[in-house]
């Protein structure tokens, strides 16, 4: 699946949006079935985002979340504060005042290449799918360590339900399996979002930066951050101005728990041996005396 195909798909998505039918079903990704060997993700071009919040609407419709009001007056009010994703909102648009004016930034799960939440899960309810989506399953026990382990604070817990779930963007995994674009990508009217294999979107991001060096800063957020993410961001201003943390480092998050996890099997073998040894060495000489006596008798 090449870039041109993608742009075509994006184009038809826009057409669908223009006729008022936000989510026309059955739009296929491409002829080829998606290769399971590569991660898929979204390239977010913040210079193109106009803050219409259609992605929020599309996302809510697809995932059965409360449908937000995206009228212009509402948007104007809402965007005054910086919001976070929640247990009822998988994706959020924020507006930042920067040196280059107002910039809109969609925020959702970054779908890390090596996700902390997946490494933290003791029942593999959080899973990194071979095609890149980080998804949540019902066998979760609700320990919420995924929330603690996520550098982007994405998994959200339903605190006010007797039967709670962890809620987060799953990059429309079901739609992907049916060969359909993620809802947010499909409804985006300005092609600010581009879906593709990580390789494709990374190349496209680099191409855009090279073609417009004055427009973009030379940094794709997510290329190296926390070991790389499947969500990539382009920006015209330094990322800290539009709400991104620059102190997360490039080490994949599961690496931080290797120190302990790799030591466990060693301790499990060494401790019993050492303690049996000490126990034997501190044994009162009673038995030894008996031995002596026996030897003397012989």
């Amino acid at each position: 699946m090449d870039r041109r195909n993608f742009l075509k798909i994006l184009g038809s998505g826009v057409a669908g949006a223009a006729t008022g039918n936000l989510l026309t079903p059955g739009r296929t990704l491409a002829k080829e079935t998606p290769s399971a060997k590569e991660f898929y993700g979204i390239l977010v071009d913040t210079t193109r985002c106009i803050g219409c919040r259609r992605c929020e609407l599309g996302c809510a419709e697809v995932n059965g979340l409360p449908v937000p009001d995206i009228s212009e007056s509402k948007n104007e009010n809402l965007l005054k504060t910086i919001r976070k994703t929640s247990d009822t909102q998988y994706t959020i648009i924020n507006r930042y005042e920067t040196e280059k004016g107002k910039i809109f930034v969609p925020k959702r799960c970054m779908h890390c290449n090596q996700p902390g939440c997946v490494a933290a899960c003791l029942v593999k309810a959080m899973r990194k799918r071979p095609s890149g989506q980080v998804t949540w399953d019902l066998n979760c026990i609700g320990c919420r360590l995924c929330m603690i382990s996520c550098p982007f604070d994405i998994p959200k817990f339903e605190y006010n339900k007797a039967i709670p779930r962890i809620q987060k963007c799953n990059l429309c995994y079901d739609r992907y399996n049916n060969g359909v674009l993620p809802a947010c990508v499909e409804v985006c009217p300005t092609q600010a979002l581009m879906f593709g294999s990580r390789k494709q979107i990374l190349e496209e991001g680099k191409r855009r930066i090279a073609a417009n060096p004055d427009k973009y800063i030379e940094h794709i957020y997510g290329e190296y951050e926390v070991g790389g993410t499947s969500h990539l961001y382009l920006s015209s201003v330094p990322f800290e101005q539009i709400g991104f943390r620059k102190d997360l480092g490039t080490v994949a998050y599961p690496k931080y728990s290797t120190g302990f996890l790799y030591a466990v099997p060693f301790i499990f073998v060494l401790w019993p041996i050492v303690m049996l040894g000490i126990n034997r060495a501190t044994k009162k000489s009673k038995e030894d005396e008996e031995h002596h006596e026996e030897k003397e008798k012989h």
Partner: peptide, 12 residues
């Protein structure tokens, strides 16, 4: 290049 983007489970 592709290798870079496939999941590697360091605790497999």
């Amino acid at each position: 290049m592709e290798e870079l983007f496939t999941y590697y489970d360091m605790f497999a």
